[in-house]
């Protein structure tokens, strides 16, 4: 298992960062997202919003990966999130549902309001391969470095949406 964590601070308020996070597909940095559906969504009695989304992503296998094991380079991803507008916190866990023996990536993201109206994003990732054949470590390392790269792109995607939201709010209705 490979583990990774990182924190990042947005200068924007929690509400607008959260909105941008939920609106992030589609964006030019996420061309690999084929579809995204809300499977279930409900408000708890205390007022949090719990959502499950099912996302289909295009992927690609590394060149060194044995041919014929993964027939299609697409992956179903489940995203479970909880938004608490009173505590100003979002928790979101994402993981792939297929190819899990080859590699499973589980990502936890949290957005919390911090001082001065800023927002702290905390991301954790766990990469696990059960592949064997002497490739487990190589697969996990590959998965982790790809995760780090994707994280950068995904943040650029959220920032792009954030900019659009800011601009639309500046315009008089």
């Amino acid at each position: 298992m490979r583990f990774f964590s990182q924190s990042y601070t947005y200068d924007d308020s929690w509400a607008i960062v959260t909105l941008a996070f939920f609106l992030r597909y589609p964006n030019p940095y996420a061309a690999h997202v084929i579809s995204c559906d809300v499977i279930s969504r409900e408000q708890t009695p205390s007022g949090s919003l719990v959502t499950t989304r099912l996302i289909l992503k295009k992927g690609s296998m590394p060149r060194w990966f044995p041919r014929g094991i993964v027939s299609r380079a697409e992956s179903w991803v489940i995203e479970e999130s909880e938004v608490d507008p009173f505590g100003k916190i979002v928790r979101c866990v994402t993981k792939n549902l297929d190819h899990v023996k080859v590699m499973q990536v589980e990502e936890s993201v949290q957005f919390a309001q911090i001082a001065e109206g800023k927002t702290l994003q905390h991301t954790e990732a766990r990469v696990v391969s059960k592949f064997g054949w002497g490739l487990t470590k190589k697969i996990e390392n590959h998965g982790l470095s790809r995760f780090k790269m994707n994280m950068q792109r995904s943040r650029e995607g959220v920032s792009l949406i954030l900019n659009l939201l800011r601009q639309s709010r500046l315009q008089p209705m």
């Binding site: 719990v50 505590g87 916190i89 866990v93 936890s108 919390a112 309001q113 911090i114 954790e124």
Partner: peptide
């Protein structure tokens, strides 16, 4: 059920 066991809040100052 991944949300049953949520990640702990970040350790830095976290004022709500």
């Amino acid at each position: 059920n991944p949300l049953v066991d949520p990640i702990p809040p970040p350790t830095s100052s976290n004022s709500n």
